[in-house]
């Protein structure tokens, strides 16, 4: 038992000591564009709903509804920015790690030797910024595997190649 403790403290690479890389800033821009499109769509819908329906039923509350929507989206944008700054990743010799979360923080590490396959995809707006996402799958319930979003495509390809070469070892 005691010798085991020694192994733990001295020889093992420590996850808490490695330096994590931040997600590329362009990804935040892409996220904000997405959010903007969504908010605009919502606003247009809400505007017409209020103008033609609600204004006749509850005219005195209309301003509060606008205020409510505004506050909600402000919080939403704030959350987006904060959660973006919490997303970090690290690729080591034998595994890949990903950190995220504002209220619930998680850190996931997948050893390369357990990876089944790697996927690289580019969503429409991300493509403008030359960004890509890497999904890593392991055996079993794959809903909980690792997805790295918003990495420069060159780097993403490198990571993918690196992992693929490691899997085949």
């Amino acid at each position: 038992m005691s010798s085991f403790e020694n192994v733990l403290i001295e020889n093992l690479p420590d996850i808490s000591k490695i330096s994590f890389k931040k997600i590329h800033k362009d990804y935040l821009k892409a996220l904000l564009i997405y959010a903007f499109i969504m908010i605009m769509a919502f606003f247009v819908g809400a505007f017409f709903l209020i103008k033609y329906k609600l204004k006749e039923v509850i005219p005195e509350h209309v301003n509060y509804i606008y205020l409510g929507i505004f506050v909600f989206f402000t919080i939403f944008i704030w959350y987006l920015v904060v959660s973006f700054s919490k997303r970090k990743y690290a690729v080591r010799e034998k595994d890949i790690s990903y950190k995220r979360g504002v209220i619930i923080k998680t850190l996931t590490t997948i050893p390369f030797s357990r990876i089944q396959h790697v996927e690289l995809d580019e969503a429409p707006i991300l493509r403008i910024f030359k960004l890509a996402s890497i999904s890593v799958f392991t055996a079993g319930d794959s809903s909980d595997d690792l997805v790295l979003k918003g990495i420069k495509k060159d780097e993403a390809l490198q990571i993918k190649e690196f992992i693929s070469s490691k899997i085949n070892e």
């Binding site: 590490t109 997948i110 050893p111 909980d144």
Partner: peptide, 14 residues
């Protein structure tokens, strides 16, 4: 036999 490891911490746990 472990496939991947995860640490999970709420702000209260922190």
């Amino acid at each position: 036999k472990v496939q991947n490891v995860k640490m999970r911490q709420t702000i209260f746990q922190e």
